[in-house]
Simulated scan of single mutants.
Amino acid sequence: MVRTVSVLGATGSIGKATLDVLQSQQDRVAVDALVGGRDVAALAQAARRMQARVAVIADPDAYQDLKAALAGSGIEAAAGPSAVVEAAARPVDWTMAAISGTAGLRPSIAAARRGGTLALATKECIVSAGTVFLDAVKAGGGALLPVDSEHNAIFQSLAGAAVRDIKKMVLTASGGPFRSWPLERIATARLEDALQHPTWSMGAKITIDSATMMNKGLELIEASYLFGVESGRIEIVVHPQSIVHGMVEFRDGSVVAGLAPADMRVAISHALGYPDRIETAVGSLDLIQIGTLTFEAPDEKRFPALKVARAALERGDGAIAALNAANEVAVEAFLARSIRFIDIMPVVIETLEQLDRRNGLAAPRDLEQVTALDDEARKTARNLMQSISNQTATQAKALP
């Protein structure tokens, strides 16, 4: 049986890995829609290669370029945010939600409401709109399958077990590029340093989140919502080899772990084939060659993001949405070299504190309230960063 599929975020790192898996299964899948951000050439090339029915670019100004790139192919071209949501709502059997940031929220919710299987690789759907997003999934009646390697490992380890049988879940973290750096050296970290992830090849934003360990904080939040387990039963463990992606300890003392090479195609293939298994081009895991697997506790003094994320989870949907928005703004500023690496977390923390003082962390009840809270958190974070920039400029002028 041929399954119809769509890929939201087809030109990003997860999207490209998804297309690689889909290409290996072309006799079993038919690609309906591919959605990209700004890279017209990559989107058009992928649409032609996968023989998609429609290709959508998020940038509305890129429509004519996309149309020209697809000329003679028979592939429909569209552009702009509304077209992205319309593509997500097209009736297909399986959708990969891999648009990074809150830009992926509306299309992912549209896909969830439509039904079918939603393979989720966009953390922001849950960390920005937890209850609202999960309500959309429930309303659509489809399946939600996690594609983050850690959550996918937990999902496979659970194998349908009841929440009451879970003693704790363990999410592993590589530790990022600064795992062994002392605090004094982290204070001097450059953009080039933060982008050197030791294990994974990812987009810039998620790589910086790995360096601060906010990525793991967001995954902790996501795990709580996905599996219905409270914060106290979720543990973060640093595992530099990135072979064990997640573990579940059950109340009878059994521990089931998900191991795999550090290759996103493993989790993508699982989500595409579920409940069956499909063949992939990923090499076998050679534990003898790997030799040693090590684990250590995360240092929350050097990486306060973990503590901040856990506190936001315990506070609820509003705090989580604000945390994510402020972090996105701060990371964008760091990538633009407007603030230092060590300024990222203070911006996030102060944004949450300011919003709390204004009673601005109430849980949003619908997508409009999610958007309003996200906007307010971003505005607050940007104002804070302007203050940081002014202070830095003043200090620079005072230097001899």
Score class of each variant (00 low, 15 high):
residue 342 I to S: 10
residue 351 T to Q: 09
residue 83 A to I: 10
residue 10 A to W: 01
residue 375 D to I: 09
residue 265 R to I: 02
residue 141 G to M: 03
residue 155 F to N: 00
residue 254 S to W: 15
residue 377 A to G: 10
residue 344 I to H: 02
residue 132 V to G: 02
residue 367 L to C: 02
residue 19 L to E: 01
residue 349 I to F: 07
residue 100 S to D: 01
residue 232 G to A: 12
residue 177 P to K: 10
residue 165 D to Q: 14
residue 81 P to W: 03
residue 46 A to M: 09
residue 375 D to Y: 14
residue 95 T to G: 07
residue 65 D to C: 09
residue 171 L to K: 04
residue 330 A to Y: 12
residue 153 A to R: 00
residue 58 A to V: 08
residue 208 I to F: 14
residue 8 L to P: 00
residue 387 S to D: 07
residue 113 R to A: 11
residue 378 R to N: 09
residue 169 M to N: 01
residue 118 L to A: 09
residue 262 A to S: 07
residue 374 D to S: 09
residue 314 E to T: 04
residue 325 A to Y: 11
residue 167 K to E: 12
residue 220 L to S: 06
residue 172 T to R: 04
residue 200 W to L: 02
residue 37 G to E: 00
residue 107 P to V: 03
residue 373 L to Q: 15
residue 221 I to H: 03
residue 164 R to E: 13
residue 267 A to H: 01
residue 9 G to C: 01
residue 310 R to A: 08
residue 142 G to L: 01
residue 113 R to W: 11
residue 55 A to K: 09
residue 148 D to Y: 02
residue 127 V to T: 04
residue 53 R to T: 08
residue 387 S to I: 06
residue 390 N to R: 13
residue 277 R to N: 13
residue 137 V to M: 01
residue 331 V to T: 11
residue 340 R to I: 05
residue 150 E to F: 12
residue 215 N to W: 14
residue 205 K to G: 04
residue 125 C to W: 02
residue 224 S to I: 01
residue 132 V to H: 03
residue 156 Q to T: 01
residue 391 Q to M: 11
residue 272 L to S: 14
residue 99 I to W: 00
residue 145 L to A: 06
residue 7 V to P: 00
residue 122 T to Q: 11
residue 281 A to I: 08
residue 16 K to P: 13
residue 116 G to T: 09
residue 34 L to G: 10
residue 113 R to K: 15
residue 25 Q to I: 05
residue 208 I to S: 06
residue 339 I to L: 06
residue 225 Y to R: 05
residue 4 T to I: 11
residue 351 T to F: 14
residue 383 N to D: 08
residue 364 P to M: 10
residue 365 R to P: 12
residue 130 G to D: 00
residue 394 T to A: 13
residue 362 A to W: 12
residue 379 K to C: 06
residue 57 I to K: 10
residue 58 A to K: 03
residue 181 W to F: 15
residue 73 S to I: 07
residue 128 S to Y: 03
residue 79 A to Y: 13
residue 269 S to A: 14
residue 215 N to L: 09
residue 287 L to F: 05
residue 346 P to H: 06
residue 311 A to R: 07
residue 158 L to C: 06
residue 222 E to I: 04
residue 147 V to I: 11
residue 90 R to H: 13
residue 67 K to V: 11
